[in-house]
Every structure is written in structure tokens, then in C-alpha cells.
Write a protein that binds this DNA or RNA. Structure first.
Lengths: 111, 111
DNA sequence: CGTGTAAGGAATTCTGACACG
DNA sequence: CGTGTAAGGAATTCTGACACG
């Protein structure tokens, strides 16, 4: 595990790095989109990977996706070993189409 | 500049990562061995590189070197462009010999 | 010289809640 | 649903100093 994945950054710094408010960052955790560690004193600790993920989350929120949809997408990405990249792309495209009302005959939903 | 050099870690975490006390970490800064950034609130922020450097400093202190000697060594390392690695090694060896009383005819000192 | 500690204050983070929409 | 904010408390960090050696 590289430095990129070490959870050593507190929420104030993450807020600065991402441009997100601390409220937003905590909310995305509440919605299971992000999983920081905790110190003995209960302080949330994030990694650089978490920072990158938060930026991606923010972009998707801007695109109109809801947190539970983003969670589904991120969870399926974790299963990259079982799901092909092509299939993943398809799922995301499908989700985006739902959001933007660009329905087609392939109305697949996440199970 | 990679993640390794981003100053995003507070002193409490650095203390845990290095095993050094916060007192020691602040003292090494006072002695110019380390140069953390500061947030608006005056909090010291360190990078993973700083953490590595602190471990090296701790080892040298254990070897009996004084902070000003360590500073000299670290400063010369920064000038890697002008000083060859071989010459650097020579200087460090010389400093160690002084410390351990293993004097030889080449009693070079840092200028 | 290098490090521990108690001291008082300032900055940071936490949680639960009310608000708006 | 996603985010802002005021509220009170707890944890973190800061500085300057005294101590020991």
C-alpha cells in the first residue's frame, strides 16, 4: 500500500484540496460514498485516494446523479475483477441516460 | 510534485508514523532540520517526505550526532547537483568518525 | 543539548438538530 | 435530497517556560 492510500489527512485539509465543504464531505460518508478512518479522538482521516474519489463524487453530483446512484457505481467499480470495464461503462451510461431522460430500449437498472 | 511531497499531515499523525514525540518533532524544526508548512491557523503540516526525513534524523541522533551536524549533512545532500554522491558519502563518514573518535589522517571538516 | 511536562489559549473537529426546498 | 448554520463539547495544536543533565 502506497502513500496514496494512507489515511493521514484531516477533514479541514481535504476540504481545501477538494473545494468541498466539511458538511458535504461528512454527508458523502453518511451516504456510504467514502470511508475515512478514525483516530482515537474520533477525528476522520482521509487518503489522497479518498481526495480523488471525492472530486469524482462532486462531479457526478453536479451531473445530477443522486448519492445512492453514485454509491452503486463506485461499488461496481470495486468489483473490477468480476465486471469488465466495458460492462461498467454500459451501466454508467445507462444511469446517466435515466438522469437525462435519454431513455432507449435497453432500460437496464442496477439490481 | 507528487503526493509524497504535499504537506497535508498534522503533527499528531506524524508523531504516530515516526514514533517521535511532538516535542522532538518541533525541536528538530527549531534546529532547522525540517521545514513544515503552516495553515492559516498556525498548524504545522508535513509531507510523507518529511516523515521519512524525520526517521533518518532520529537514527542519526541515536548514533550520537548533534542537530547542527545533521543539518550540515542534510544541506549538503540538497546540493546533489554540485556534490557527487561519492564525495557526500565521504563527508558523512568523516563526520561519523569524528563522533566515534575513529580519526584518520584525513581530518576534513565541513566548511 | 535534547527532551519531558504543566499552563493557558486558540484553532479544529465532532455530533445532533433545525432550516430550506 | 443535498447543504448551510448555530451550539456545545471534546480533542488537537501552539507558544514560552522551567527542569534535568
Amino acid at each position: 500500500m502506497s502513500y496514496k492510500d494512507k489515511k493521514v489527512i484531516s477533514i479541514g485539509v481535504v476540504s481545501e484540496l477538494t473545494g468541498l465543504s466539511e458538511r458535504q464531505i461528512r454527508y458523502y460518508e453518511e451516504r456510504q460514498l467514502i470511508h475515512p478512518d478514525r483516530t482515537k479522538g474520533r477525528t476522520r482521516m482521509y487518503s489522497f485516494s479518498d481526495v480523488e474519489l471525492l472530486v469524482e463524487i462532486a462531479n457526478k453530483i453536479e451531473d445530477g446523479l443522486q448519492t445512492y446512484e453514485i454509491r452503486k457505481i463506485n461499488e461496481s467499480q470495486k468489483e473490477q475483477k468480476t465486471i469488465s470495464k466495458e460492462k461498467l461503462r454500459e451501466e454508467i451510461r445507462g444511469q446517466l441516460n435515466v438522469r437525462f431522460g435519454l431513455m432507449n430500449r435497453n432500460e437496464s437498472k442496477f439490481k
